[in-house]
Amino acid sequence: TSLKEAPVRAMLEATRGSVVGTHPMFGPSVHTLQGQRVVLCRARGEAWADWVAHTLTARGLVITETSPAQHDRAMAVVQVLTHFQTQVLGLTLARLGIPLTETMPFTSPAYLLELYVAARHFAQDPGLYGPIEMRNPRTGDVTTAFGGAVQELAAVIGEGDQAAFTRLFEEVRAFFGDFTAEALIQSSFLIDRIVERS
């Protein structure tokens, strides 16, 4: 499941057996397990937890071990924020009244990459994404922060305040730090592959 605190607690209460919470960070459509991530939350029974970790690692998966609380905190960003912003983008596009086909002849590689991510999201089951976002105990913090950021940035752009825009831009750049260099390389690789296939 996409949450670990409540499920691990329920498993511990329901049995005296070994308990390990797992969360594969990939869906059923992946073409290989090599390099895919799985989160493990040890709860009871080191021998079986060791067996699970060894079995998954032996098949090429990358294991991250953490507590259920830290897992759920991370999922508030990795899943809730990511899916929420994708849904906001999709909902905005759907309500602007500009047909998708009208924008395609003008698409930049970055816009196309965003469209692929958003359309992939909406090609799947809302019954999967709803609970991921609705049941995380930190969802309210994420959606409130997102709404505040939208309002702040919209006000800066609406006022045409380049100095304030630059301050916000630099604040985020500082947050990303050295990851920006890696992001340029990796996103350029993805963009090149998309352009090659077009």
Rank of each mutant, 00 (worst) to 15 (best):
T1A: 08
T1I: 07
T1S: 15
L3E: 10
E5R: 09
V8G: 10
V8L: 09
M11P: 03
L12K: 01
T15N: 12
R16G: 10
R16D: 11
S18N: 03
S18W: 02
V20P: 01
V20D: 01
T22Y: 00
T22R: 04
H23C: 09
H23M: 08
P24D: 05
M25P: 03
M25T: 03
F26K: 07
V30R: 06
T32L: 02
Q34H: 06
R37H: 13
V38N: 04
C41R: 03
G45L: 01
W48F: 13
W48E: 03
W51Q: 14
V52C: 05
H54G: 06
L56R: 00
T57I: 01
T57E: 05
T57Y: 00
A58K: 06
R59F: 04
G60Y: 11
G60I: 05
T64I: 11
E65G: 01
E65L: 04
E65Q: 11
T66I: 08
T66C: 12
S67I: 06
Q70V: 12
H71N: 14
D72N: 13
D72H: 01
D72T: 06
R73K: 15
M75D: 08
M75N: 08
M75P: 03
A76P: 03
A76G: 15
A76H: 02
T82C: 09
H83D: 15
H83M: 14
H83F: 12
L89V: 08
G90E: 00
T92D: 07
L93T: 04
L93Y: 10
R95G: 08
L96K: 00
I98A: 02
P99W: 01
T101N: 05
F106H: 13
A110V: 13
A110F: 11
L113H: 14
E114W: 05
L115E: 01
Y116V: 15
Y116H: 06
A118K: 10
A118N: 10
A119G: 08
H121L: 11
H121Y: 14
H121N: 03
F122A: 07
D125E: 15
P131T: 02
I132M: 14
E133T: 09
P137N: 11
P137D: 08
P137W: 12
G140Q: 07
V142M: 05
V142K: 00
T143W: 12
A145G: 11
F146T: 09
F146G: 03
Q151L: 11
L153Q: 02
L153P: 02
A154C: 14
A155S: 07
V156P: 05
V156G: 13
G158L: 11
E159Y: 08
G160T: 15
G160R: 14
T166S: 09
R167L: 14
R167E: 14
R167F: 04
E170V: 03
E170W: 06
E171V: 10
V172Q: 07
V172F: 10
V172I: 08
R173N: 15
A174W: 04
F175V: 13
F175Y: 15
F176M: 08
G177K: 14
G177A: 13
D178I: 10
F179I: 03
T180P: 00
A181P: 01
I191E: 15
R193K: 15
R193F: 00
I194M: 08
E196V: 09
E196F: 13
E196S: 14
S198C: 12
